[in-house]
Write a protein that binds this DNA or RNA. Structure first.
Lengths: 242, 242
DNA sequence: CGCACAGTTGATATTTCTCAATAAGGGTGG
DNA sequence: CCACCCTTATTGAGAAATATCAACTGTGCG
């Protein structure tokens, strides 16, 4: 028996908007189970028409897509609370793949009930659209990063964003947070070569702004790093949780 | 008195899913008017909390955002049928600006009724989410382009996408379609410098694949151009129209 | 006429990529 | 337990792609 939504640990994180009792019990009906996967497990495949949607409950993953020439683009990193599979749910086909990078626990929803969802709970339907808009907003920022920032600025920007995200989820302790990705993942996310990403990271480390090894990211001067990344530290606003 | 939705010329384009009579009359209530703007007019501003949402009825525009260092990223190009202002509608703040590039006619919706929308017409709410998912899907492709394709591949890819989009809207006659953007727009969309974009276009023209001058894009060999852009010509599927 | 903007072109500078080699760690089979 | 292999990270050197700078053209417009 999966944990009931009212006991969902994400509920209590202040990164998320709280759900009403009514909404919670509705989500419990919508929830069809839980899925636990190990690192490296594919969760959704690009081009697939998946019958299930997920919310990441714990652990981290990655979204990516592959070009005809074999090159890979990382779309973004999956954190707890992320909704996975919207594209399949509404368009019938994923534009990217999702893969676990750590042990992950996922809340599973049945796609066949997705449309019902809109019918019976407009507030929740609105929240899904909200999530989609947040995603679109963020992807605009990523576009601007890959398109307009230099390698150093890009890396700084990305790590600031990741760190802020981690902080809002309570993953940061003493300026450190777990970051279970490889330099290749970051390189593919930023449209940079692995080698150049490595050298860029080394330079930032040299400047004492951060260190990232053994899957631990430590940021020593977030302000300075944000400045380097041509961004500022806005307080992250709460988002809906599915 | 604005044109009633049932007479909307976009309705009849086969790029869009048809609306039921019921939906049409509902949209007429939701519609608060029409807006006509001239080239260069800003429609929505990055960071603004706009009270209105739009659907482009005719004409073309551009979405862009500006970095702290003044660099500009074009997010995408606005075509007839595009829904504008979702981010403001649901998050309360636009992540990019929208500006007219030709004379444009816009269908105006009142944001204050946006939430109602979800309550009273779940099918239409679903369609909004669908549009958001399409946008997200496309932006993933753009990310992969800027991040992984070479300049030549990027330009070829972009023009193929634009041409396909134009074709689905009936804007193509004899391999030609209007393209009221500048080379700078395209450069800023692809994260390339203006000069390099110009030379890349010249090379593609030299190869007789296309020509683009006087705001007219002509593609001579779409197949070959698609191949150059590492993409294929999938039949574009119908999308919802707001 | 003169100015602003879009496009074009050549020369040069810089960033970033590719190639190649090395090192460290984890896992596995013998 | 050791030898081997695979992945990840690291570093140096040279190559390629792309950016920057600068000059020039044509066009539309007040």
């Amino acid at each position: 028996m999966p944990t009931q939504c009212r006991y969902c640990p994400l509920q209590r994180k202040d990164a998320f908007l709280p759900l009403s009792k009514d909404e919670l019990s509705f989500m419990e009906k919508f929830k069809s189970g839980e899925l636990t996967v190990e690192p490296g497990t594919p969760i959704l495949l690009e081009g697939s028409n998946a019958p299930q949607l997920f919310t990441a409950l714990s652990g981290m993953g990655i979204r990516d897509k592959t070009l005809e020439n074999g090159k890979r683009q990382v779309i973004n990193f999956v954190f707890p609370g992320d909704f996975i599979g919207l594209q399949a749910g509404v368009m019938g086909e994923m534009g990217h793949s999702v893969e676990a990078r750590t042990h992950m626990r996922l809340c599973v929803f049945n796609r066949s009930e997705f449309y019902n969802f809109f019918k019976s709970h407009p507030e929740r339907a609105f929240d899904i659209t909200w999530l989609a808009a947040i995603e679109e907003h963020f992807m605009g920022e990523v576009l601007a990063t890959i398109g307009q920032r230099t390698a150093t600025q890009s890396v700084a920007w990305a790590l600031v964003k990741i760190f802020e995200r981690g902080r809002s989820l309570g993953m940061v302790t003493q300026n450190q947070m777990p970051l279970p990705y490889t330099q290749r993942d970051l390189a593919d996310a930023l449209g940079l070569s692995l080698v150049h990403t490595n050298k860029t990271l080394a330079a930032l480390k040299e400047r004492q702004l951060l260190s990232w090894s053994d899957r631990i990211l430590q940021i020593n001067d977030l302000e300075a790093l944000a400045k380097e990344g041509l961004t500022s530290l806005e307080g992250r606003q709460k988002r809906p949780l599915m």
